[in-house]
Nucleic acid binder design. Structure first.
Length: 304
DNA sequence: AACTTCCGCAACCGCATACCT
DNA sequence: GAGGTATGCGGTTGCGGAAGT
C-alpha cells in the first residue's frame, strides 16, 4: 500500500518527480537555494533522507531541517511527511471496531477537532481520521439522507451504530482471549472479514491506552457511555446519570432534554422503537442474530 | 478490452496560534 | 507590545486504482 502511493505524481510536480520551480511569494524571485522546490508525492530517496536526518538530529525546527537535510522541500512538507507517514509508530490499515467507536464518540464531543481526536488513537494521524470521517461517515450520512452533524444521524450513531461496534469489540475480545482456538463462524465471509481487519489488525492495546488516557469522558468512561445508550434504547435505565454526564450535552443539545424519561420519549417512543420510521428499520436488523458476527461500520449500514 | 465514473488517501493550502527577538 | 517566523490545524485538492458500463 505504501509503495503504491509513492509512485503517484501530481499536477504540480513534473512527470517523473522532477523538481518544479516555484515562485516563492507572489511573483518575487525565489531564494537561490529554493530555486527548485519539490512538491507532490515523496520518493523513496527523499523518505530515506528525511528519516536518516531525523534519526541523527531529531525532529522539529522543520524549516532549518528542510534546508540542512538537502531536501528540496518546505519545512511544512517535511513535517507532514514525517508525522503522517514516516514516524515509526504510525499505524496504517483499516480502523478497527474500537477505533471507529472512539472516533464516533470523540467526534460527538469535539466535532472536527481531528488533532485532538487523534491524540486518543495512538498511531493514528489527524489526517487519517479526517479522511475516514469524510469518506466513510459522511458517505453513510448521505445514504441516510441526513447530515452527518444532524441530530438524527447522531442519534443513529449513538443508539445503533456505536452500541454494536461495542458489541463487535466485546465479541472480538472474547475471541482473542478464549483459550479454545476452534471458535466457529457461521460464514466463510465472517472469517475473511475478521482477517481483513477486525482480528488480524487488532488494536486492543491501543484502545486500552486511549481509554486509560481519557481525561474528560466522565464517570464510567467510554463503555459506560456506549452501553448506557444501549440500555436506554432497549428500554432500560439506571445508567442515565453516567450517560448524561458523559454526554456533556453534546448529543442532546438540539433537543434540550434533561431527564431520562424525556430522552427516552424522544429516542424510543416508549416501546424500544425509534420514532424515526426509517431508522426503526435498523432496529429490526440489529435485534436479529447479531451476537455471533463481527460488525463493521459497513455491515451495520447494510441492514437498513 | 476500452472507457468512464467513483472513491480513498497523501499532500497541499490558508489561516490561526505560539514562540522568539 | 510589535513584528517576524515557526508550527499546528482543518479544509480542500487531485492522483491513481477500483469498480462499473
Amino acid at each position: 500500500m505504501a509503495e503504491s502511493q509513492r509512485s503517484r505524481s501530481r499536477t504540480c510536480s513534473s512527470p517523473g518527480g522532477a523538481p518544479v520551480e516555484l515562485d516563492d511569494d507572489h511573483g518575487h524571485p525565489p531564494e537561490e537555494e529554493q530555486l527548485e522546490l519539490r512538491r507532490g508525492p515523496w520518493t523513496v530517496d527523499e523518505d530515506l533522507t528525511l528519516v536518516n536526518y531525523i534519526a541523527d538530529h531529531g525532529e522539529g525546527r522543520w524549516n532549518s531541517l528542510a534546508r540542512a537535510s538537502g531536501l528540496k522541500r518546505t519545512g511544512k512538507s517535511c513535517r507532514l511527511r514525517w508525522l503522517n507517514y514516516l514516524r515509526p509508530d504510525v499505524k496504517r490499515g483499516n480502523f478497527t471496531a474500537d477505533e471507529q467507536l472512539l472516533i464516533l464518540d470523540l467526534h460527538t464531543r469535539w466535532g472536527n477537532r481531528w488533532s485532538k481526536i487523534a491524540q486518543h488513537l495512538p498511531g493514528r494521524t489527524d489526517n487519517e481520521i479526517k479522511n475516514y470521517w469524510r469518506t466513510r461517515v459522511q458517505k453513510h450520512a448521505k445514504q441516510l439522507n441526513c447530515d452527518a452533524n444532524s441530530k438524527r444521524f447522531k442519534d443513529a450513531m449513538r443508539y445503533l451504530w456505536m452500541p454494536h461496534l461495542a458489541d463487535a469489540d466485546d465479541h472480538r475480545r472474547r475471541l482473542l482471549h478464549a483459550a479454545a482456538p476452534h471458535h466457529h463462524h457461521h460464514h466463510a465471509a465472517d472469517v475473511a472479514h475478521a482477517a481483513a481487519g477486525m482480528v488480524m489488525t487488532s488494536s486492543s492495546d491501543s484502545f486500552a491506552t486511549a481509554e486509560s488516557s481519557y481525561d474528560d469522558v466522565g464517570p464510567g468512561g467510554l463503555y459506560a457511555n456506549v452501553h448506557a445508550g444501549e440500555m436506554l434504547f432497549s428500554g432500560g435505565g439506571g445508567e442515565w446519570a453516567a450517560l448524561e454526564t458523559a454526554n456533556q450535552g453534546l448529543w442532546s443539545s438540539s433537543s434540550a432534554v434533561s431527564d431520562q424519561s424525556a430522552v427516552a420519549q424522544v429516542i424510543t417512543g416508549g416501546g424500544g422503537q425509534f420514532q424515526d420510521p426509517e431508522l426503526s428499520g435498523w432496529v429490526q436488523g440489529f435485534s436479529e442474530g447479531i451476537t455471533e458476527n463481527f460488525w463493521a461500520l459497513e455491515d451495520i449500514w447494510k441492514i437498513q
